[in-house]
Amino acid sequence: MKTTNEPDLPESDLPESVIRRRTLKAFGWFALASVVPVGVYSWIQNSPNLAGIRKPLRKMLDVNEDIASTYFSNNHLVRTYPVEAAARVPRVNGFDGLRTPLPDDWKLQIDRQGSDGEPQEPLLLTMDDVKALPRQELVYDFKCVEGWSQIQHWSGVRFSDFMERYQLGTRSGKAPSPDNTDDLYKFVGMETPDKGYYVGIDMESAMHPQTLLAYELNGEPINNQHGAPVRLLIPHKYGVKNLKRIGRIFFSDTRPRDFWAERGYDYYLGL
């Protein structure tokens, strides 16, 4: 019944003393090697926290970001669906940054700096200024970091169009140019008017063609719970990065503070 291609196991004749020595040696190494996983585990668990998570894990998550950015592409688009597929009652999850009423004098504030790094007068925009840009619709599978997802129908304007129109995110103060990506700041920061919620987004992800400043959900102006009057929609990141009710936008070369990253989540959270 021996199958033709399976070779016999090699055998050898050895004195019992040699066998005993080899066995002891193997178990010695085995015992020694078993210390390694225990050591690694306790080294990680005994490391200090760096932004809410053990430092070695945090460092590796940042390496993961570097790995992910090698294959990130603006050509990799989130899958879209027909409008009918969208949920009638989109799920609401999380009220941080929304616990105070929306200020009556709300304006979208965008911080600007001169090429010398000196702060300039912030740009204050109304919803009409935002809506003046080409309207985009996006029906896609919104993904929560918790693991659930839901097809939702959002409308708004491309964040990249917005940056171009208002000449934002560059050191030179000119509109971003694909030929001069070095001119761009490395990060976009956003926060709610009450500063109760805040996110940082790497510039590459912010410039993705499906990253929107959204003001409509299922064709209606978005309600307070979903982040009225305008929110970030970044479909290639988990929901926690999709800040609701934007109060202030700013640009920087260092990571802006991030609500959930401070609580131990990965900063990047790119999908």
């Binding site: 053990r54 894990l57 590796m60 131990g264 989540y265 990965d266």
Partner: peptide, 11 residues
């Protein structure tokens, strides 16, 4: 312990 779980898992 979601954040912790994701960190260990992705490392």
């Amino acid at each position: 312990r979601l954040a912790e779980g994701m960190a260990w898992h992705f490392v």
